[in-house]
Computed example of a mutant assay.
Amino acid sequence: MPKQKDILTTGEVAKICNVAPRTVSKWFDSGQLKGYRIPGSKDRRIPLTALIKFMKQHQIPLDGLQSGKTRVLLVDEVSETVEVLKKMLVEQAGYEVDLAHSGFSAGVECEKFRPHVILIDLHLGDVSGEDVLKLVRENPDLQMSKVIAVSGKLTEGQASALTTAGFDGFLRKPFHVKQVIDIVEEATALVY
């Protein structure tokens, strides 16, 4: 297990708190979040101890501190597929990965796991992928979560219409693990 860092960037703090990097900058600039600027630069650094104190004061869940890794929730009814994909994403990309095998369990896992990226099969038996997307978009705690639709049954037109419907991307089955890593990295790319 890698050693936890003592000093964090605003991007790392944003990932841990599941907020935009600009929000962290505002916390810093207003004096709410203690830290320092790099001399000769506008870059900010936040000591881990100051971040923990800030998170406790503002009732921000501390579970993001456990890893600081990108959290990915895989939602698919085919358990063999997601089990293999989970193993590959953990080993090859170092992600923290959780699984859900239905739309209902996806909603429960979103609340507990606070994923950065949700890869959801659009053809779940109990709840549609669109319904899970709606739940995520309506939850203020999940506003930074990116939702990627997964399907092997859609035409090109239907697939491109998904971004209009609010999805952050689309992945066509079957896919390679590298494609999954690429789309997760693209979805979580932070602009400073």
Score class of each variant (00 low, 15 high):
18 N>D: 15
140 P>G: 03
24 V>E: 02
190 L>Y: 06
174 P>W: 07
80 E>L: 10
151 S>L: 06
116 H>A: 09
67 S>W: 12
36 Y>K: 02
117 V>A: 00
154 L>A: 03
151 S>W: 03
166 G>A: 09
133 L>T: 01
139 N>T: 10
90 V>R: 12
37 R>M: 08
164 T>I: 15
184 V>P: 05
145 S>M: 02
81 T>Y: 15
153 K>V: 00
140 P>H: 09
147 V>E: 02
191 V>W: 14
85 L>P: 08
8 L>H: 07
75 V>F: 02
183 I>P: 13
59 Q>V: 02
6 D>C: 10
49 T>Y: 13
161 A>V: 04
128 S>H: 06
68 G>L: 07
48 L>V: 01
64 G>K: 02
190 L>V: 11
91 E>Y: 06
108 V>I: 14
22 R>L: 12
32 Q>A: 15
97 V>A: 05
62 L>C: 01
111 E>S: 08
121 D>I: 04
66 Q>W: 06
189 A>V: 02
133 L>P: 10
108 V>P: 11
97 V>P: 05
157 G>D: 12
20 A>G: 07
186 E>W: 15
183 I>R: 05
64 G>I: 06
154 L>F: 02
52 I>H: 00
29 D>F: 08
189 A>F: 15
149 A>D: 04
134 K>R: 14
70 T>A: 05
184 V>C: 03
23 T>A: 02
53 K>Q: 10
55 M>H: 01
97 V>G: 03
140 P>A: 02
93 A>Q: 00
61 P>K: 04
169 G>V: 04
11 G>R: 12
146 K>Q: 12
28 F>K: 07
71 R>H: 14
81 T>F: 14
50 A>C: 10
64 G>W: 03
126 D>R: 11
148 I>A: 01
126 D>G: 10
51 L>P: 05
39 P>G: 10
79 S>P: 03
110 C>P: 09
90 V>P: 05
134 K>T: 13
188 T>N: 03
51 L>G: 08
186 E>T: 14
87 K>C: 11
157 G>Y: 04
116 H>I: 00
104 F>L: 14
55 M>E: 06
82 V>Y: 01
159 A>I: 09
4 Q>N: 15
168 D>I: 04
96 E>N: 07
